[in-house]
Write a protein that binds this DNA or RNA. Structure first.
Lengths: 128, 128
DNA sequence: ATAAGGGTTCCAGCAAGTGGAAGGTCAAGG
DNA sequence: CCTTGACCTTCCACTTGCTGGAACCCTTAT
């Protein structure tokens, strides 16, 4: 497979796949013309990374998860720890965003949103 | 005021204040020794930006909000539009994170998290 | 022969700062 | 007067995870 096929089948942009090679996730063979040539195993790996990324795992998390994935002696506790840490960070982000949402939607409700200059949003931001 | 005082009073790190000068938010005078010298107005502006940032507004949003803040002829509708756009983005992020949370916490619950290699989290990520 | 549609490399940039090195300045204590 | 430590200065690099673009090569069809 060339990079375009892998891009289509994995759902990742070709640019991203090249980037993943750069940072050492995959090492595809090269044809005589210099083209990358991927096998099913690499496609599978890329799809794995894509799914992990979509669940919020960092690149470094993906590295660890892949290592565990390929280690048939792994302890599921190690995987679970990484996942729990990620979940904690997701929850923290949600909490932050919810706080923003609360304040902001309140201010928006207060604001008339017409041609007049009076504005509770700016008033709040300008509060000493 | 020197930058350290402004940092303390605005809650922004000195580094960030210098960065905000770089990108044109403020233009503090300089003493003969080269030190930045801030007045209350600039402190106020920085605090304004800090609050806007903490509500999730981008730097470019802050630029617009600041311009509106200083424009006594502004229409509150313009402010409200920016805020509503930001709120939309916040909501989108929350939705994304909640989807991640749902999937991930489900997988975590399924995972025994012991010494055995069997792991639903990896199984899911590796699904073709 | 040429044009379209692959592929390649490398360099730059995004957001919004943060870290660190190398050096100048200021106020207080001995 | 000198030194010490806390400030301040600039500049450059790095962060995360890609993405865009330029310049160029390869393949296939017409």
């Amino acid at each position: 497979m060339n990079i375009g096929d892998v891009a289509e089948r994995s759902g990742l942009p070709a640019k991203t796949i090249r980037y993943y090679e750069d940072i050492g996730f995959i090492k595809p063979r090269r044809g005589l013309n210099g083209y990358r040539h991927f096998d099913e195993k690499e496609l599978h790996k890329l799809a794995f990374i894509g799914r992990a990324r979509s669940l919020g795992f960092t690149i470094e998390d993906c590295r660890s998860l892949l290592a565990l994935y390929e280690d048939k002696e792994r302890a599921s506790a190690d995987v679970k720890d990484i996942a729990k840490q990620n979940l904690k960070e997701i929850d923290a982000k949600i909490a932050d965003l919810k706080a923003m949402h609360a304040t902001l939607s309140h201010l928006i409700d207060e604001c008339a949103g017409d041609h007049r200059p009076d504005c509770p949003i700016l008033k709040n931001l300008g509060q000493t």
